[in-house]
Simulated scan of single mutants.
Amino acid sequence: MYRNNRISLSSQQGNVYIVAIFVIVVMGMLALNLTRISWSNQDTLTREVLGSQASFLAQSGNEWALTHLFPLDQDDDHDSLVTRCSSLGNDAIGAKNALVANSGVACTAPDISCVYPFEDNEDSVPDELKYIQVSTRAICNDGNVFVVEREETVWVRGVKGE
């Protein structure tokens, strides 16, 4: 019994094309999925960096506001803090621009606000519960797609004079 090799080679020739096409399709799908994962990682990293920049800028705004509310060698009682809180908006204009200029990031000027929430019913609230809320909101973007916003809030109380 002798086998005819010509028939077996010609009958297997179409199978090689099918296997080659299958391998090309599978490799193409793998390459496409790896590209998607890579883009996803880049997007996540961009958002993380922008979020960190916005968070640090908001924290810097709060630190500036606290140095405005608690200056050295001045009274830190509640009434003095309320007075400084009301003047914070005018003084913060230059600080906002300086914070962005010195940060080196693509962010808008942070919104620094100081609120005394007990203004309407000050007499009914005990002194130990009165506080001032300092809040800074920073927005950073990459110029194309992503916009990230962070807001940080600090509550402060005055120190009773002796």
Rank of each mutant, 00 (worst) to 15 (best):
L34I: 13
Q13I: 10
P71S: 09
I112V: 14
L99T: 04
M29W: 12
Y17V: 15
D127Q: 07
G104A: 08
N41M: 13
E63S: 12
V16L: 15
T44P: 00
G94Q: 06
T35A: 15
N102T: 14
V49D: 01
F70G: 05
S103H: 03
I112N: 00
P110E: 05
N62W: 03
R84P: 03
D77E: 11
Q133K: 14
I112K: 02
N144R: 15
D111F: 09
M27G: 12
V26P: 04
H78A: 03
G28L: 08
N121Y: 07
L34W: 11
P110V: 08
A58F: 03
M27C: 13
G61D: 01
A58T: 04
A138H: 07
G89M: 14
A58H: 03
K130C: 01
Q53P: 02
A101E: 12
L129W: 10
G89H: 12
L34T: 12
Q53I: 02
V134L: 14
E48Y: 09
S8I: 15
N144G: 07
L99W: 00
A138M: 13
G94E: 09
G14R: 12
A54M: 03
N90Y: 08
A92M: 03
N144Q: 15
P71E: 02
E119I: 09
E128Q: 12
E128A: 14
Q13T: 14
G94R: 07
F56P: 01
V134Y: 01
L69Y: 04
N141G: 13
V100N: 01
Q12Y: 13
F70Q: 05
P71H: 05
I37F: 06
E48N: 14
S103V: 00
T44E: 03
Q133A: 10
N121H: 10
D79K: 03
C114P: 07
A65V: 06
Q42M: 11
A54N: 05
V82T: 09
W64C: 02
G89P: 01
C140W: 03
S60D: 06
D142R: 06
I18N: 08
S55H: 11
I7H: 12
T83S: 12
A95M: 07
V16W: 10
T67I: 04
D111L: 12
S8E: 13
G14N: 11
G51Q: 05
Y17A: 15
L72A: 15
F22Y: 11
Q59R: 12
M27I: 13
D79V: 07
F56V: 06
A92N: 02
W64N: 01
F118R: 02
A106M: 06
D77M: 05
N102Q: 13
S113H: 06
D142Y: 14
N90C: 04
S11E: 10
L9P: 00
W64G: 00
L81P: 02
L45Y: 13
D91T: 12
N121A: 10
R6P: 00
Q13G: 07
F56A: 14
D43W: 11
S10H: 13
N5Y: 13
T108R: 10
A65K: 00
A54Q: 01
D75V: 11
Q59E: 15
M29A: 15
L66C: 08
V49E: 05
R84T: 05
C114Q: 03
S8Q: 14
I21W: 11
S8L: 15
D77R: 02
V105Q: 08
Q53L: 01
K130E: 02
Q53N: 14
V100P: 02
V16F: 14
I21S: 14
T67P: 06
V23R: 04
L72R: 14
M27S: 15
Q12V: 11
V25D: 10
D123E: 13
